[in-house]
């Protein structure tokens, strides 16, 4: 195919990747559902794990091939300004959808802290309304606090004593991850996590500036530092989770504090892992394949946008999950 005339629109050839990607997504979720039901003892058949694995392998393979095709098209000069703009718009709105995903979990956190937990503990909610009988009849003895160290179930004397349907054992933690006071500030892991991630947002920006100046060596160094900082964050987060589970008794099952804590930080951590992999791919593309030019590097820019987004989510987490 010849280079595209900017006055003529470009539409890609038909491709078998999309439908294979849809198949991969189906195998992944069908396998995941079967595996999860198997863990809970209600599986329809036992080989869900293999389906899940096959789905993930196909997913990663197609994703690799799809991105490779997109990169090759760009290098071959097939992408006119309009196609490039489509990728820019696509990435921007994808990040917006990610923002809304996290919004749902922050919404849940705000609701339980300002409404559900005060009601259960017999206190006024954010708007001054009380649910006295809920507390007196169902969860008598519960103290409103955040982090919620004793669950309503514990407050009434365990799962066998609660008056509504039992849906599991919820045992509160002995210690929380919240701000430990100024004395413990420098041994508080979340602070270091914040420092690491904010620094990495800064270093990826420096890498971007060097790419624009076509200073390849500095690009390699600063992007490499960013990847290392990302890996550091993941390690610190692993240490934090290990501490939470083994020393604090803080788990996904330890009531609403543990549930919101692990879901919010867990999804964020998953996004950091994805972001680190993406940045690593950018580093490999830049150093090994020599991709990117000062004027044509949207792959890199999209990766850095994603990284900044992950950073902003962390700042919200640091404020709403750890400090307040």
């Amino acid at each position: 195919m010849a280079k595209q005339d900017p006055e003529i629109y470009y539409v890609p050839e038909k491709s078998r990747k999309p439908i294979l990607m849809a198949l991969a997504m189906f195998l992944t979720v069908f396998g995941a559902a079967t595996t999860i039901n198997h863990m809970s003892g209600t599986a329809i058949f036992p080989i869900g794990g293999y389906i899940l694995f096959a789905g993930l392998v196909l997913f990663v393979t197609i994703m690799f091939l799809w991105f490779r095709t997109a990169i090759m098209e760009n290098l071959a000069g097939l992408n006119n300004e309009q196609v490039k703009q489509s990728y820019v718009l696509g990435m921007s709105w994808f990040i917006f959808s990610e923002v809304m995903f996290f919004f749902g979990f922050f919404f849940a956190l705000a609701y339980v802290r300002n409404f559900a937990v005060p009601w259960l503990g017999g206190e006024a909610d954010l708007l001054g309304t009380m649910r006295q009988s809920t507390h007196d009849i169902l969860w008598n003895g519960l103290v409103t606090q955040w982090p919620l160290m004793e669950t309503p179930q514990q407050a009434v004397g365990g799962a066998s004593q609660q008056l509504i349907a039992n849906n599991g054992e919820f045992i509160g933690p002995h210690a929380s991850m919240s701000f430990p006071g100024w004395l413990g500030l420098f041994t508080w892991l979340p602070l270091w996590n914040t420092v690491v991630l904010l620094t990495s947002s800064f270093t990826v920006h420096i890498a971007h500036l060097h790419l624009k100046n076509n200073d390849r060596n500095k690009l390699t160094v600063w992007l490499g530092i960013t990847v290392l900082l990302g890996i550091t964050f993941i390690l610190l987060q692993y240490i934090e989770y290990h501490e939470a589970y083994n020393q604090y008794g803080l788990t996904l099952q330890s009531g609403i504090y543990g549930t919101t804590f692990f879901m919010l930080t867990g999804f964020h951590g998953f996004h950091v892992i994805m972001g680190t992999v993406i940045l690593l791919v950018m580093w490999l593309r830049s150093t090994i394949a020599g991709h990117f030019s000062p004027s044509n590097h949207f792959g890199f820019e999209a990766a850095s946008w994603y990284w900044h987004f992950v950073d902003v989510v962390w700042v919200c987490l640091f404020i709403f999950v750890y400090i307040l």
Partner: peptide, 22 residues
């Protein structure tokens, strides 16, 4: 929902401090 059903979460169960109304 998935977390509550299969992984012991308590988003929607008051016994753990959550709320079905959430």
């Amino acid at each position: 929902m998935l977390i509550d059903i299969h992984f012991g979460g308590s988003f929607f169960s008051a016994a753990g401090g959550g709320d079905p109304v959430l």
